[in-house]
């Protein structure tokens, strides 16, 4: 004998379950779209011990809860480094108040010229979310090897000036310090804004 009164709720319960499952499945089948290159899991978690622009020791673990963006350069670089940092600053301006969740780490590959004082005035020119970092050879090598980036110092000219070649990579991490995205200095600000916004709202 059937009980029409109990069948209806059971159908509704099953339909509800199917809906939940469908939602879950559709959540899996439409992953987030990134403008930058997704490198999740390809590189290790952010880890370093360096000195910031105020002369204080900064470790990657101090940045947990923030979205770190890592870029290697040098302040005597007239063109590419300021262009990349200005692009990132522009991306942050478009994020508005959410930009406070992001920290741009500018790691000098030329610590001989990039003293903490030089780094301080340099990062201040780009914004409050920018951190200038330097370290000794061992500390710097640890980080550059970890992210497989290289750099080279050229020969000094008669004025003592020398050029530095450095990676153009911009690494973006999530709040846990896990690597997520790889950008280039030449990527447009709107790509950084788009992807940073997604990372900020992931948590």
């Amino acid at each position: 004998m059937t009980h029409p009164k109990t069948r209806a709720p059971r159908v509704a319960r099953i339909a509800g379950l199917v809906l939940v499952l469908l939602t879950a499945v559709s959540g899996c089948s439409s992953p987030q779209k990134w403008d930058l290159t997704n490198i999740t899991g390809i590189m290790p978690q952010l880890k370093f011990t360096l000195t910031d622009q105020d002369g204080k020791t900064l470790q990657a673990s101090d940045l947990r809860g923030k979205i770190p963006v890592l870029y290697f350069g040098y302040t005597n670089c007239p063109d590419i480094c300021p262009t990349t940092l200005a692009t990132l600053a522009q991306a942050l301006r478009k994020l508005g108040a959410e930009a406070n969740a992001v920290r741009i780490l500018f790691v000098s590959v030329d610590p001989a010229r990039d003293t903490t004082a030089v780094l301080k005035s340099y990062v201040q020119a780009f914004g409050p979310q920018f951190i200038g970092l330097r370290g000794d050879q061992k500390e710097l090598r640890y980080l550059t090897k970890r992210y497989r980036v290289t750099y080279g110092l050229g020969k000094a000219d008669a004025h003592g000036n020398y050029e530095v070649s450095h990676s153009s990579a911009v690494f973006v991490f999530d709040r846990k310090g896990d690597v997520r995205l790889l950008g280039r200095g030449t990527d447009p600000a709107k790509s950084y804004t788009h992807d940073l916004k997604q990372l900020i709202n992931d948590n």
């Binding site: 480094c81 980036v149 050029e163 990676s167 990579a169 030449t186």
Partner: peptide, 8 residues
């Protein structure tokens, strides 16, 4: 840019 390196 050459091989992922910024150069001048």
């Amino acid at each position: 840019e050459s091989d992922g390196m910024s150069k001048m």
